[in-house]
């Protein structure tokens, strides 16, 4: 699977591996769901917000088991508590990219409290992630929480 033009900012890293690091044979062609492929080829909201801005919260999280790294940023309207803009950049497999892409799509326009109600299981369901890729959705949920936590810290709420 190759990244389309819009996918330049994200990389494929689809390597089904055992947790001893060994490549699983015969599973390299494991199919992605259509929605994962769609987010992978046309990732929504890839980019960067100014992490030094008081309006911006940044969440940087990683999955040690597979070495994926995910950064999710939000720009929040302090008055309405609404997430007006969300950006991500993920270095990882297709599922990690799709999970973070979907997460930005879901949180934009929501209040931070509302965004915090998003569960990784919602992402799993929407993207039909297989069990071995559930950790990608956990990573996306962690990223949302980390970004909101960072924004709250900056704005003296925590």
């Amino acid at each position: 699977m190759r990244a389309g033009a819009a996918g330049l900012a994200v990389w494929p890293r689809w390597r089904p591996v055992h947790d001893n690091g060994e490549l699983k044979s015969g599973e390299t062609t494991m199919a992605y769901s259509e929605k994962v492929v769609d987010h992978y080829n046309n990732p929504r909201n890839v980019g960067t917000l100014d992490k030094n801005s008081a309006e911006v919260g940044t969440g940087l999280v990683g999955a040690p088991e597979c070495g994926d790294v995910m950064r999710l940023q939000i720009r929040v309207n302090a008055e309405t508590q609404v997430i007006e803009e969300a950006k991500f950049k993920t270095f990882g497999c297709g599922s990690a990219i799709a999970s973070s892409s979907l997460a930005t799509e879901w949180i934009q326009g929501r209040t931070i409290d509302d965004a915090l109600s998003i569960k990784n299981t919602d992402i799993v369901k929407e993207l039909s992630l297989p069990p071995v890729k559930i950790h990608c959705s956990v990573l996306a949920e962690d990223a949302i929480r980390a970004a909101i936590g960072d924004w709250r810290k900056k704005n003296g709420a925590e």
Partner: peptide
């Protein structure tokens, strides 16, 4: 969780390569 400074470093390296 992975230490924050390690994540920062890895992310930056990824950006460079990207």
């Amino acid at each position: 969780k992975t230490p924050a400074d390690l994540l920062e470093e890895v992310f930056e390296l990824n950006m460079e390569v990207d």
